[in-house]
Design a protein around this nucleic acid. Sequence first.
DNA 1: GCCGTTTTCGGCCCGACTGTTTTCAGTCG
Length: 576
Amino acid sequence: MKNLQLAATLNEIADLLEILGENPFRIRAYRRAARSIELLPESIETVWREGRLQEIEGVGKGLAAGIEQWLAEGVMDAHEELKRRIPRGLLEVVRVPGVGPKTAKLLYDALGVQSLADLEEACRAGRVRTIKGLGPKTEENILRGIERLRRFAARTPIGVALPLAQGIVAELAALPAVRRAAYAGSLRRGRETVGDIDVLVASSAPDQVIEAFVALPGVEHILSRGQEKASVLLAQGLQVDLLVVPEEQFAAALHHFTGSKEHNVTLRELARARGLRISEHGIVDEATGAAIPVLEEEDIFSALGLPFIPPELREDGSEISAARAGVLPRLVELSDIRGDLHVHSTWSDGRASIREMAEAARARGYEYIAITDHSKSLGVARGLSPERLVQQIEEIRALNRLWDNFQILAGAEVDILPDGTLDYDDELLRRLDIVVASVHSAMNQDRETMTERIIKAMRHPCVDIVAHPTGRVLGRREAYDVDVERLIVAAAETGTCLEINASPERLDLSDVYARAAKDAGVWLAINTDAHDVESLQQMALGVVTARRGWVEKRHVLNCLPLPELRRTLKRGRARV
DNA sequence: GCCGTTTTCGGCCCGACTGTTTTCAGTCG
Protein backbone atom coordinates (compact mmCIF):
# COMPACT_ATOMS: atom_id res chain seq x y z
CA MET A 1 0.00 0.00 0.00
CA LYS A 2 1.64 3.17 -1.21
CA ASN A 3 -1.11 5.51 -0.06
CA LEU A 4 0.90 7.32 2.59
CA GLN A 5 3.91 7.80 0.32
CA LEU A 6 1.70 9.23 -2.40
CA ALA A 7 0.00 11.54 0.07
CA ALA A 8 3.43 12.72 1.24
CA THR A 9 4.44 13.45 -2.35
CA LEU A 10 1.28 15.45 -2.98
CA ASN A 11 1.80 17.39 0.23
CA GLU A 12 5.36 18.11 -0.78
CA ILE A 13 4.16 19.45 -4.11
CA ALA A 14 1.76 21.69 -2.21
CA ASP A 15 4.59 22.93 0.03
CA LEU A 16 6.77 23.73 -2.96
CA LEU A 17 3.95 25.49 -4.82
CA GLU A 18 3.33 27.53 -1.70
CA ILE A 19 6.94 28.66 -1.51
CA LEU A 20 6.67 29.74 -5.13
CA GLY A 21 3.57 31.75 -4.23
CA GLU A 22 1.38 29.80 -6.65
CA ASN A 23 -2.41 29.90 -6.82
CA PRO A 24 -3.59 29.04 -3.30
CA PHE A 25 -6.54 27.06 -4.63
CA ARG A 26 -4.31 24.86 -6.69
CA ILE A 27 -2.27 24.25 -3.55
CA ARG A 28 -5.40 23.41 -1.61
CA ALA A 29 -6.38 20.93 -4.30
CA TYR A 30 -3.12 19.03 -3.79
CA ARG A 31 -3.56 19.03 -0.02
CA ARG A 32 -7.14 17.88 -0.27
CA ALA A 33 -6.26 15.00 -2.52
CA ALA A 34 -3.38 14.07 -0.20
CA ARG A 35 -5.76 13.93 2.74
CA SER A 36 -8.31 11.80 0.89
CA ILE A 37 -5.60 9.34 -0.08
CA GLU A 38 -4.25 9.16 3.48
CA LEU A 39 -7.71 8.14 4.65
CA LEU A 40 -8.50 5.85 1.73
CA PRO A 41 -9.55 2.43 3.07
CA GLU A 42 -8.06 0.56 0.13
CA SER A 43 -4.75 0.66 -1.66
CA ILE A 44 -4.29 3.31 -4.30
CA GLU A 45 -2.93 0.68 -6.68
CA THR A 46 -6.21 -1.20 -6.51
CA VAL A 47 -8.19 1.96 -7.15
CA TRP A 48 -5.96 2.74 -10.12
CA ARG A 49 -6.19 -0.77 -11.59
CA GLU A 50 -9.94 -0.58 -11.41
CA GLY A 51 -9.98 2.84 -13.08
CA ARG A 52 -11.59 4.56 -10.12
CA LEU A 53 -8.99 7.26 -9.34
CA GLN A 54 -11.38 10.09 -10.10
CA GLU A 55 -13.92 8.69 -7.67
CA ILE A 56 -11.57 9.78 -4.88
CA GLU A 57 -12.75 13.00 -3.26
CA GLY A 58 -10.60 15.86 -4.60
CA VAL A 59 -9.01 13.91 -7.44
CA GLY A 60 -9.91 15.13 -10.91
CA LYS A 61 -8.50 14.61 -14.36
CA GLY A 62 -5.19 16.35 -13.76
CA LEU A 63 -4.31 14.73 -10.46
CA ALA A 64 -5.47 11.34 -11.69
CA ALA A 65 -2.94 11.60 -14.53
CA GLY A 66 -0.20 12.60 -12.09
CA ILE A 67 -1.02 9.75 -9.72
CA GLU A 68 -1.08 7.29 -12.59
CA GLN A 69 2.38 8.43 -13.67
CA TRP A 70 3.65 8.21 -10.10
CA LEU A 71 2.35 4.67 -9.71
CA ALA A 72 3.73 3.56 -13.07
CA GLU A 73 7.07 5.38 -13.06
CA GLY A 74 7.65 6.32 -9.45
CA VAL A 75 7.82 10.04 -10.24
CA MET A 76 5.42 12.83 -11.10
CA ASP A 77 6.32 15.52 -13.64
CA ALA A 78 4.85 18.32 -11.56
CA HIS A 79 6.97 17.21 -8.60
CA GLU A 80 10.21 16.83 -10.54
CA GLU A 81 9.78 20.24 -12.14
CA LEU A 82 9.30 21.90 -8.75
CA LYS A 83 12.28 20.15 -7.23
CA ARG A 84 14.41 21.62 -10.00
CA ARG A 85 13.20 25.11 -9.18
CA ILE A 86 13.48 25.08 -5.40
CA PRO A 87 16.07 23.50 -3.12
CA ARG A 88 14.38 20.80 -1.11
CA GLY A 89 15.99 22.06 2.08
CA LEU A 90 13.42 24.84 2.08
CA LEU A 91 10.82 22.19 2.93
CA GLU A 92 12.35 21.85 6.37
CA VAL A 93 12.60 25.63 6.70
CA VAL A 94 8.82 25.99 6.33
CA ARG A 95 8.36 23.43 9.10
CA VAL A 96 9.83 25.87 11.61
CA PRO A 97 6.91 27.26 13.63
CA GLY A 98 6.29 30.84 12.60
CA VAL A 99 8.11 30.48 9.30
CA GLY A 100 5.72 30.12 6.41
CA PRO A 101 6.27 29.81 2.68
CA LYS A 102 6.58 33.58 2.16
CA THR A 103 9.27 33.99 4.78
CA ALA A 104 11.11 30.92 3.53
CA LYS A 105 11.18 32.33 0.02
CA LEU A 106 12.29 35.70 1.32
CA LEU A 107 15.13 34.11 3.29
CA TYR A 108 16.16 32.12 0.23
CA ASP A 109 16.12 35.12 -2.12
CA ALA A 110 17.76 37.57 0.27
CA LEU A 111 20.25 35.39 2.14
CA GLY A 112 20.48 32.22 0.08
CA VAL A 113 19.09 30.14 2.96
CA GLN A 114 18.60 26.61 1.62
CA SER A 115 18.37 24.50 4.76
CA LEU A 116 17.69 24.48 8.47
CA ALA A 117 21.43 24.75 9.14
CA ASP A 118 21.70 27.82 6.86
CA LEU A 119 18.78 29.40 8.64
CA GLU A 120 20.21 28.82 12.08
CA GLU A 121 23.53 30.30 11.07
CA ALA A 122 21.87 33.35 9.51
CA CYS A 123 19.91 33.96 12.71
CA ARG A 124 22.94 33.61 14.94
CA ALA A 125 24.93 35.97 12.71
CA GLY A 126 22.13 38.55 12.99
CA ARG A 127 21.60 38.57 9.24
CA VAL A 128 17.88 37.80 9.34
CA ARG A 129 17.07 41.12 11.01
CA THR A 130 18.68 42.98 8.14
CA ILE A 131 15.87 41.91 5.80
CA LYS A 132 13.04 44.38 5.39
CA GLY A 133 9.98 43.06 7.19
CA LEU A 134 11.89 40.84 9.60
CA GLY A 135 13.37 41.93 12.90
CA PRO A 136 15.18 40.72 16.01
CA LYS A 137 12.02 39.17 17.48
CA THR A 138 11.60 37.05 14.38
CA GLU A 139 15.20 35.95 14.63
CA GLU A 140 14.68 34.91 18.22
CA ASN A 141 11.46 33.05 17.41
CA ILE A 142 13.06 31.20 14.52
CA LEU A 143 15.90 29.98 16.72
CA ARG A 144 13.42 28.80 19.30
CA GLY A 145 11.40 27.11 16.57
CA ILE A 146 14.44 25.26 15.22
CA GLU A 147 15.28 24.09 18.72
CA ARG A 148 11.72 22.83 19.14
CA LEU A 149 11.79 20.96 15.84
CA ARG A 150 14.96 19.20 16.85
CA ARG A 151 13.95 18.30 20.40
CA PHE A 152 10.40 17.07 20.02
CA ALA A 153 8.51 14.63 17.85
CA ALA A 154 6.05 16.23 15.49
CA ARG A 155 3.06 14.31 16.83
CA THR A 156 2.16 12.91 20.23
CA PRO A 157 0.30 9.61 20.78
CA ILE A 158 -3.27 10.06 21.98
CA GLY A 159 -2.47 8.01 25.08
CA VAL A 160 -0.02 10.70 26.19
CA ALA A 161 -2.00 13.75 25.08
CA LEU A 162 -5.41 12.73 26.41
CA PRO A 163 -4.57 12.67 30.13
CA LEU A 164 -2.70 15.97 29.75
CA ALA A 165 -5.72 17.52 28.05
CA GLN A 166 -8.09 16.17 30.68
CA GLY A 167 -5.91 17.63 33.39
CA ILE A 168 -5.83 21.05 31.77
CA VAL A 169 -9.57 21.03 31.17
CA ALA A 170 -10.17 20.10 34.81
CA GLU A 171 -7.94 22.92 36.06
CA LEU A 172 -9.63 25.49 33.84
CA ALA A 173 -13.12 24.21 34.64
CA ALA A 174 -12.39 24.80 38.32
CA LEU A 175 -11.79 28.52 37.79
CA PRO A 176 -14.66 30.68 39.06
CA ALA A 177 -14.78 32.64 35.78
CA VAL A 178 -15.31 29.48 33.72
CA ARG A 179 -18.76 28.21 32.73
CA ARG A 180 -17.79 25.35 30.44
CA ALA A 181 -14.53 23.77 29.31
CA ALA A 182 -13.69 21.04 26.83
CA TYR A 183 -10.86 19.78 24.68
CA ALA A 184 -11.39 19.86 20.94
CA GLY A 185 -9.16 19.44 17.89
CA SER A 186 -7.80 16.15 16.62
CA LEU A 187 -7.94 14.82 20.18
CA ARG A 188 -11.73 15.10 20.18
CA ARG A 189 -11.81 13.55 16.73
CA GLY A 190 -9.89 10.65 18.22
CA ARG A 191 -6.83 10.68 15.99
CA GLU A 192 -4.18 8.22 17.18
CA THR A 193 -1.60 11.00 17.36
CA VAL A 194 -2.11 14.71 17.80
CA GLY A 195 -0.03 17.73 16.81
CA ASP A 196 -1.27 19.87 19.66
CA ILE A 197 -4.00 20.12 22.29
CA ASP A 198 -6.92 22.48 21.66
CA VAL A 199 -8.91 23.64 24.64
CA LEU A 200 -12.10 25.64 24.57
CA VAL A 201 -13.58 27.61 27.46
CA ALA A 202 -16.83 29.53 27.91
CA SER A 203 -16.41 32.54 30.13
CA SER A 204 -17.46 36.16 30.44
CA ALA A 205 -14.04 37.07 31.78
CA PRO A 206 -11.59 35.85 29.12
CA ASP A 207 -8.70 37.89 30.51
CA GLN A 208 -8.85 36.00 33.81
CA VAL A 209 -9.01 32.65 32.07
CA ILE A 210 -6.07 33.43 29.82
CA GLU A 211 -4.05 34.71 32.74
CA ALA A 212 -4.64 31.46 34.61
CA PHE A 213 -4.00 29.38 31.49
CA VAL A 214 -0.54 30.77 30.78
CA ALA A 215 0.35 30.27 34.44
CA LEU A 216 -0.64 26.59 34.55
CA PRO A 217 1.97 24.25 35.97
CA GLY A 218 3.91 22.61 33.17
CA VAL A 219 3.80 25.67 30.92
CA GLU A 220 7.32 26.28 29.71
CA HIS A 221 6.82 29.07 27.24
CA ILE A 222 4.03 31.42 26.14
CA LEU A 223 3.81 31.37 22.34
CA SER A 224 1.04 33.91 21.99
CA ARG A 225 -1.48 35.65 24.17
CA GLY A 226 -4.39 37.75 22.96
CA GLN A 227 -7.89 38.85 23.96
CA GLU A 228 -9.60 35.53 23.35
CA LYS A 229 -6.82 33.12 22.32
CA ALA A 230 -3.53 32.01 23.79
CA SER A 231 -0.96 29.34 22.99
CA VAL A 232 1.61 27.80 25.28
CA LEU A 233 4.30 25.17 25.08
CA LEU A 234 4.37 22.47 27.75
CA ALA A 235 7.62 21.09 29.08
CA GLN A 236 6.99 17.91 27.07
CA GLY A 237 7.12 19.99 23.90
CA LEU A 238 3.39 19.80 23.30
CA GLN A 239 1.61 22.98 22.24
CA VAL A 240 -1.70 23.86 23.86
CA ASP A 241 -4.07 26.34 22.20
CA LEU A 242 -6.81 27.98 24.21
CA LEU A 243 -9.90 29.72 22.86
CA VAL A 244 -12.20 31.63 25.22
CA VAL A 245 -15.68 32.57 24.05
CA PRO A 246 -18.93 33.85 25.59
CA GLU A 247 -21.13 30.96 26.69
CA GLU A 248 -23.66 31.47 23.88
CA GLN A 249 -20.87 30.89 21.34
CA PHE A 250 -19.55 27.72 22.96
CA ALA A 251 -21.15 25.22 20.59
CA ALA A 252 -20.13 27.11 17.45
CA ALA A 253 -16.61 27.48 18.80
CA LEU A 254 -16.47 23.80 19.76
CA HIS A 255 -17.34 22.86 16.21
CA HIS A 256 -14.79 25.28 14.79
CA PHE A 257 -12.04 24.16 17.14
CA THR A 258 -12.77 20.47 16.62
CA GLY A 259 -12.16 20.74 12.89
CA SER A 260 -10.77 19.20 10.89
CA LYS A 261 -9.74 22.19 8.87
CA GLU A 262 -10.89 20.43 5.72
CA HIS A 263 -14.24 19.63 7.32
CA ASN A 264 -14.69 23.26 8.34
CA VAL A 265 -13.78 24.56 4.91
CA THR A 266 -16.15 22.18 3.16
CA LEU A 267 -18.98 22.90 5.56
CA ARG A 268 -18.48 26.66 5.26
CA GLU A 269 -18.50 26.43 1.48
CA LEU A 270 -21.78 24.60 1.67
CA ALA A 271 -23.10 27.27 4.02
CA ARG A 272 -22.11 30.07 1.65
CA ALA A 273 -23.94 28.38 -1.19
CA ARG A 274 -27.00 28.67 1.01
CA GLY A 275 -26.45 32.28 1.96
CA LEU A 276 -25.01 31.58 5.40
CA ARG A 277 -21.68 32.40 6.97
CA ILE A 278 -20.22 30.09 9.58
CA SER A 279 -17.40 31.07 11.91
CA GLU A 280 -16.33 30.19 15.43
CA HIS A 281 -18.71 32.91 16.60
CA GLY A 282 -21.81 31.37 15.08
CA ILE A 283 -23.92 31.46 11.95
CA VAL A 284 -25.03 34.62 10.22
CA ASP A 285 -27.61 34.96 7.46
CA GLU A 286 -25.73 36.95 4.82
CA ALA A 287 -28.84 38.60 3.39
CA THR A 288 -30.32 39.88 6.64
CA GLY A 289 -27.25 39.93 8.85
CA ALA A 290 -29.26 38.07 11.46
CA ALA A 291 -27.54 35.57 13.71
CA ILE A 292 -28.90 32.03 13.77
CA PRO A 293 -28.72 30.69 17.31
CA VAL A 294 -26.35 27.77 17.87
CA LEU A 295 -27.03 26.15 21.23
CA GLU A 296 -25.53 22.78 20.35
CA GLU A 297 -23.31 21.55 17.53
CA GLU A 298 -26.40 19.91 16.04
CA ASP A 299 -27.79 23.36 15.25
CA ILE A 300 -24.94 24.06 12.84
CA PHE A 301 -25.64 20.94 10.82
CA SER A 302 -29.40 21.35 10.93
CA ALA A 303 -29.08 24.93 9.65
CA LEU A 304 -27.61 23.33 6.52
CA GLY A 305 -30.23 20.60 6.38
CA LEU A 306 -27.73 17.97 7.52
CA PRO A 307 -27.83 15.33 10.24
CA PHE A 308 -25.30 15.59 13.07
CA ILE A 309 -21.85 14.46 11.99
CA PRO A 310 -19.90 12.92 14.89
CA PRO A 311 -16.44 14.41 15.54
CA GLU A 312 -14.70 11.16 14.61
CA LEU A 313 -15.97 11.47 11.04
CA ARG A 314 -15.01 15.11 10.50
CA GLU A 315 -11.94 14.61 8.38
CA ASP A 316 -11.70 15.04 4.64
CA GLY A 317 -15.11 16.39 3.68
CA SER A 318 -16.34 13.04 2.40
CA GLU A 319 -18.41 12.82 5.60
CA ILE A 320 -20.32 15.89 4.41
CA SER A 321 -21.07 14.23 1.08
CA ALA A 322 -22.28 11.18 2.99
CA ALA A 323 -24.44 13.34 5.24
CA ARG A 324 -25.97 15.10 2.24
CA ALA A 325 -26.69 11.76 0.60
CA GLY A 326 -28.25 10.48 3.82
CA VAL A 327 -25.77 7.60 4.10
CA LEU A 328 -23.93 8.49 7.31
CA PRO A 329 -23.24 5.37 9.39
CA ARG A 330 -24.80 4.86 12.81
CA LEU A 331 -21.50 4.58 14.62
CA VAL A 332 -20.86 2.04 17.34
CA GLU A 333 -21.01 3.49 20.86
CA LEU A 334 -19.25 2.57 24.07
CA SER A 335 -22.60 1.54 25.56
CA ASP A 336 -23.04 -1.02 22.75
CA ILE A 337 -20.08 -3.02 24.03
CA ARG A 338 -21.18 -6.13 25.94
CA GLY A 339 -17.85 -7.62 26.82
CA ASP A 340 -14.10 -7.67 26.40
CA LEU A 341 -12.60 -10.58 24.50
CA HIS A 342 -8.91 -10.11 25.22
CA VAL A 343 -7.68 -9.58 28.77
CA HIS A 344 -4.94 -11.04 30.94
CA SER A 345 -4.73 -12.19 34.54
CA THR A 346 -2.07 -13.00 37.11
CA TRP A 347 -1.92 -16.47 35.58
CA SER A 348 0.41 -14.95 32.97
CA ASP A 349 1.62 -11.32 32.99
CA GLY A 350 -1.52 -9.59 34.26
CA ARG A 351 -1.73 -7.81 37.60
CA ALA A 352 -5.23 -8.83 38.67
CA SER A 353 -6.82 -12.19 39.35
CA ILE A 354 -9.40 -13.71 37.04
CA ARG A 355 -12.10 -12.95 39.56
CA GLU A 356 -10.97 -9.32 39.93
CA MET A 357 -11.01 -8.83 36.17
CA ALA A 358 -14.44 -10.43 35.98
CA GLU A 359 -15.89 -8.31 38.77
CA ALA A 360 -14.46 -5.17 37.17
CA ALA A 361 -16.04 -6.18 33.86
CA ARG A 362 -19.38 -6.76 35.57
CA ALA A 363 -19.09 -3.34 37.20
CA ARG A 364 -18.76 -1.88 33.72
CA GLY A 365 -22.06 -3.48 32.82
CA TYR A 366 -20.55 -6.20 30.64
CA GLU A 367 -22.21 -9.59 30.13
CA TYR A 368 -19.00 -11.46 29.52
CA ILE A 369 -15.24 -11.31 29.49
CA ALA A 370 -12.71 -13.63 27.90
CA ILE A 371 -9.60 -14.44 29.89
CA THR A 372 -6.87 -14.83 27.29
CA ASP A 373 -3.54 -15.34 28.95
CA HIS A 374 -0.38 -15.89 27.00
CA SER A 375 0.61 -19.28 25.62
CA LYS A 376 3.59 -21.37 26.58
CA SER A 377 6.23 -20.02 24.16
CA LEU A 378 5.96 -16.49 25.46
CA GLY A 379 8.32 -16.98 28.39
CA VAL A 380 8.75 -13.27 29.14
CA ALA A 381 5.03 -13.05 29.81
CA ARG A 382 4.93 -16.27 31.85
CA GLY A 383 2.91 -18.03 29.18
CA LEU A 384 0.80 -20.93 30.44
CA SER A 385 1.89 -24.53 29.96
CA PRO A 386 -0.84 -26.84 28.65
CA GLU A 387 -1.30 -28.22 32.16
CA ARG A 388 -1.70 -24.76 33.66
CA LEU A 389 -4.17 -23.82 30.96
CA VAL A 390 -6.27 -26.87 31.80
CA GLN A 391 -6.23 -25.81 35.44
CA GLN A 392 -7.23 -22.31 34.44
CA ILE A 393 -10.16 -23.59 32.41
CA GLU A 394 -11.35 -25.51 35.47
CA GLU A 395 -11.03 -22.45 37.67
CA ILE A 396 -13.04 -20.41 35.19
CA ARG A 397 -15.77 -23.05 35.03
CA ALA A 398 -15.97 -22.95 38.83
CA LEU A 399 -16.04 -19.14 38.98
CA ASN A 400 -18.88 -19.07 36.49
CA ARG A 401 -21.17 -20.64 39.08
CA LEU A 402 -21.01 -17.30 40.95
CA TRP A 403 -23.20 -15.37 38.56
CA ASP A 404 -26.28 -15.99 36.49
CA ASN A 405 -26.04 -12.85 34.35
CA PHE A 406 -22.34 -12.87 33.61
CA GLN A 407 -19.93 -15.36 32.10
CA ILE A 408 -16.18 -15.71 31.86
CA LEU A 409 -15.09 -17.28 28.60
CA ALA A 410 -12.09 -19.54 28.89
CA GLY A 411 -9.69 -18.38 26.23
CA ALA A 412 -6.06 -17.92 25.36
CA GLU A 413 -3.91 -15.50 23.47
CA VAL A 414 -2.10 -18.12 21.49
CA ASP A 415 1.16 -17.27 19.81
CA ILE A 416 1.28 -17.68 16.08
CA LEU A 417 4.65 -19.37 15.79
CA PRO A 418 7.08 -18.35 13.04
CA ASP A 419 5.82 -21.13 10.76
CA GLY A 420 2.17 -20.18 11.21
CA THR A 421 1.31 -23.06 13.52
CA LEU A 422 -0.17 -22.43 16.95
CA ASP A 423 1.41 -22.67 20.38
CA TYR A 424 -1.06 -25.30 21.73
CA ASP A 425 -2.25 -28.50 20.14
CA ASP A 426 -5.70 -28.75 18.59
CA GLU A 427 -7.16 -30.88 21.32
CA LEU A 428 -6.40 -28.27 23.95
CA LEU A 429 -7.57 -25.42 21.73
CA ARG A 430 -10.91 -27.20 21.25
CA ARG A 431 -11.49 -27.13 25.01
CA LEU A 432 -11.42 -23.33 25.02
CA ASP A 433 -14.44 -21.08 24.48
CA ILE A 434 -12.47 -18.63 22.40
CA VAL A 435 -9.02 -18.35 20.85
CA VAL A 436 -7.22 -15.10 20.17
CA ALA A 437 -4.11 -15.58 18.05
CA SER A 438 -1.28 -13.13 17.66
CA VAL A 439 2.34 -12.63 16.69
CA HIS A 440 4.95 -11.94 19.38
CA SER A 441 8.09 -13.39 17.87
CA ALA A 442 10.15 -13.37 14.68
CA MET A 443 8.74 -9.98 13.82
CA ASN A 444 11.42 -9.29 11.24
CA GLN A 445 10.20 -11.92 8.80
CA ASP A 446 9.76 -10.71 5.25
CA ARG A 447 6.39 -9.54 4.05
CA GLU A 448 5.41 -12.71 2.23
CA THR A 449 6.39 -15.00 5.10
CA MET A 450 4.66 -12.89 7.72
CA THR A 451 1.49 -12.54 5.67
CA GLU A 452 1.31 -16.28 4.95
CA ARG A 453 2.10 -17.04 8.59
CA ILE A 454 -0.90 -15.09 9.84
CA ILE A 455 -3.21 -16.35 7.10
CA LYS A 456 -2.26 -19.91 7.99
CA ALA A 457 -3.36 -19.23 11.55
CA MET A 458 -6.63 -17.77 10.29
CA ARG A 459 -7.35 -20.97 8.42
CA HIS A 460 -7.18 -22.91 11.68
CA PRO A 461 -10.73 -23.85 12.72
CA CYS A 462 -10.10 -22.81 16.34
CA VAL A 463 -8.75 -19.31 15.71
CA ASP A 464 -11.57 -16.86 16.31
CA ILE A 465 -9.73 -13.55 16.46
CA VAL A 466 -6.38 -12.25 15.29
CA ALA A 467 -5.21 -9.74 17.88
CA HIS A 468 -3.25 -6.53 17.12
CA PRO A 469 -2.85 -7.65 13.52
CA THR A 470 0.02 -5.35 12.51
CA GLY A 471 2.03 -5.43 15.75
CA ARG A 472 2.79 -1.73 15.78
CA VAL A 473 3.49 0.17 19.00
CA LEU A 474 2.85 3.87 18.50
CA GLY A 475 5.98 5.97 18.69
CA ARG A 476 8.10 2.92 19.56
CA ARG A 477 7.86 0.14 17.03
CA GLU A 478 6.76 0.07 13.43
CA ALA A 479 4.28 -2.54 12.31
CA TYR A 480 5.92 -5.71 11.11
CA ASP A 481 6.02 -6.04 7.36
CA VAL A 482 2.66 -7.53 6.48
CA ASP A 483 0.13 -7.17 3.68
CA VAL A 484 -2.91 -6.05 5.64
CA GLU A 485 -5.10 -6.06 2.56
CA ARG A 486 -4.45 -9.78 2.10
CA LEU A 487 -5.12 -10.38 5.79
CA ILE A 488 -8.48 -8.70 5.39
CA VAL A 489 -9.36 -10.85 2.38
CA ALA A 490 -8.32 -13.98 4.27
CA ALA A 491 -10.28 -12.91 7.34
CA ALA A 492 -13.38 -12.54 5.21
CA GLU A 493 -12.83 -15.94 3.57
CA THR A 494 -12.15 -17.82 6.78
CA GLY A 495 -14.65 -15.99 8.95
CA THR A 496 -11.90 -14.87 11.28
CA CYS A 497 -12.48 -11.74 13.30
CA LEU A 498 -9.85 -8.97 13.37
CA GLU A 499 -9.15 -7.04 16.53
CA ILE A 500 -9.10 -3.34 17.14
CA ASN A 501 -6.74 -3.39 20.08
CA ALA A 502 -7.79 -0.49 22.30
CA SER A 503 -4.53 -0.12 24.16
CA PRO A 504 -3.45 3.51 23.55
CA GLU A 505 -0.01 2.49 22.36
CA ARG A 506 -1.41 0.03 19.84
CA LEU A 507 -4.77 1.06 18.36
CA ASP A 508 -4.26 -1.82 15.99
CA LEU A 509 -6.08 -2.22 13.61
CA SER A 510 -5.91 1.50 12.94
CA ASP A 511 -8.95 3.51 11.90
CA VAL A 512 -8.22 3.21 8.17
CA TYR A 513 -7.65 -0.55 8.27
CA ALA A 514 -10.70 -1.04 10.48
CA ARG A 515 -12.73 0.69 7.83
CA ALA A 516 -11.26 -1.49 5.11
CA ALA A 517 -12.01 -4.64 7.12
CA LYS A 518 -15.56 -3.51 7.79
CA ASP A 519 -16.04 -2.77 4.09
CA ALA A 520 -14.86 -6.30 3.30
CA GLY A 521 -17.47 -7.79 5.61
CA VAL A 522 -14.99 -8.84 8.29
CA TRP A 523 -16.11 -9.03 11.92
CA LEU A 524 -14.23 -6.70 14.24
CA ALA A 525 -13.65 -7.14 17.97
CA ILE A 526 -12.78 -4.12 20.09
CA ASN A 527 -10.63 -5.43 22.95
CA THR A 528 -8.52 -3.76 25.60
CA ASP A 529 -5.77 -6.36 26.06
CA ALA A 530 -5.99 -5.19 29.68
CA HIS A 531 -3.33 -6.44 32.10
CA ASP A 532 -5.03 -4.78 35.07
CA VAL A 533 -8.46 -3.65 36.16
CA GLU A 534 -7.94 0.03 35.30
CA SER A 535 -7.03 -0.70 31.70
CA LEU A 536 -10.50 -2.05 30.99
CA GLN A 537 -11.53 1.56 30.56
CA GLN A 538 -9.29 1.84 27.51
CA MET A 539 -12.26 0.36 25.67
CA ALA A 540 -13.31 3.96 25.03
CA LEU A 541 -10.25 4.58 22.85
CA GLY A 542 -10.89 1.41 20.87
CA VAL A 543 -14.46 2.47 20.26
CA VAL A 544 -13.27 5.90 19.09
CA THR A 545 -10.87 4.23 16.68
CA ALA A 546 -13.68 2.03 15.36
CA ARG A 547 -15.90 5.09 14.96
CA ARG A 548 -13.16 6.78 12.94
CA GLY A 549 -13.33 3.71 10.73
CA TRP A 550 -17.07 4.30 10.17
CA VAL A 551 -17.74 1.07 12.09
CA GLU A 552 -21.27 0.32 13.26
CA LYS A 553 -22.55 -1.86 16.07
CA ARG A 554 -23.47 -4.57 13.58
CA HIS A 555 -19.81 -4.98 12.59
CA VAL A 556 -18.56 -5.58 16.11
CA LEU A 557 -18.42 -9.08 17.55
CA ASN A 558 -18.43 -8.00 21.18
CA CYS A 559 -21.61 -6.00 20.69
CA LEU A 560 -23.43 -9.33 20.41
CA PRO A 561 -25.28 -10.84 23.36
CA LEU A 562 -23.48 -13.92 24.65
CA PRO A 563 -25.60 -16.61 22.97
CA GLU A 564 -25.22 -14.94 19.58
CA LEU A 565 -21.55 -14.39 20.21
CA ARG A 566 -21.10 -18.11 20.86
CA ARG A 567 -22.97 -19.00 17.68
CA THR A 568 -20.91 -16.55 15.66
CA LEU A 569 -17.51 -17.83 16.75
CA LYS A 570 -16.01 -20.45 14.44
CA ARG A 571 -16.56 -23.29 16.88
CA GLY A 572 -20.18 -22.20 17.27
CA ARG A 573 -20.75 -22.29 13.55
CA ALA A 574 -18.98 -25.63 13.24
CA ARG A 575 -21.40 -27.18 15.70
CA VAL A 576 -24.49 -26.18 13.73
C1' DG B 1 -6.50 21.78 -9.67
C1' DC B 2 -11.37 20.66 -8.46
C1' DC B 3 -16.23 21.07 -8.92
C1' DG B 4 -21.57 21.94 -9.96
C1' DT B 5 -30.19 21.07 -6.34
C1' DT B 6 -28.30 28.53 -9.09
C1' DT B 7 -22.52 27.33 -12.41
C1' DT B 8 -18.70 23.14 -17.43
C1' DC B 9 -16.59 28.83 -15.94
C1' DG B 10 -15.79 31.26 -12.03
C1' DG B 11 -15.87 30.49 -7.94
C1' DC B 12 -13.07 28.07 -4.10
C1' DC B 13 -13.79 29.66 4.87
C1' DC B 14 -12.94 32.68 8.36
C1' DG B 15 -10.97 35.21 11.96
C1' DA B 16 -7.21 36.08 15.69
C1' DC B 17 -2.50 37.17 16.79
C1' DT B 18 2.34 38.73 15.91
C1' DG B 19 5.87 41.59 14.36
C1' DT B 20 6.71 44.68 11.57
C1' DT B 21 4.80 48.37 10.03
C1' DT B 22 2.59 53.56 10.03
C1' DT B 23 -1.93 50.33 7.74
C1' DC B 24 -0.81 45.30 7.03
C1' DA B 25 1.21 40.83 5.50
C1' DG B 26 2.16 36.47 7.11
C1' DT B 27 1.06 32.64 9.89
C1' DC B 28 -1.88 29.64 12.16
C1' DG B 29 -5.68 26.69 13.16
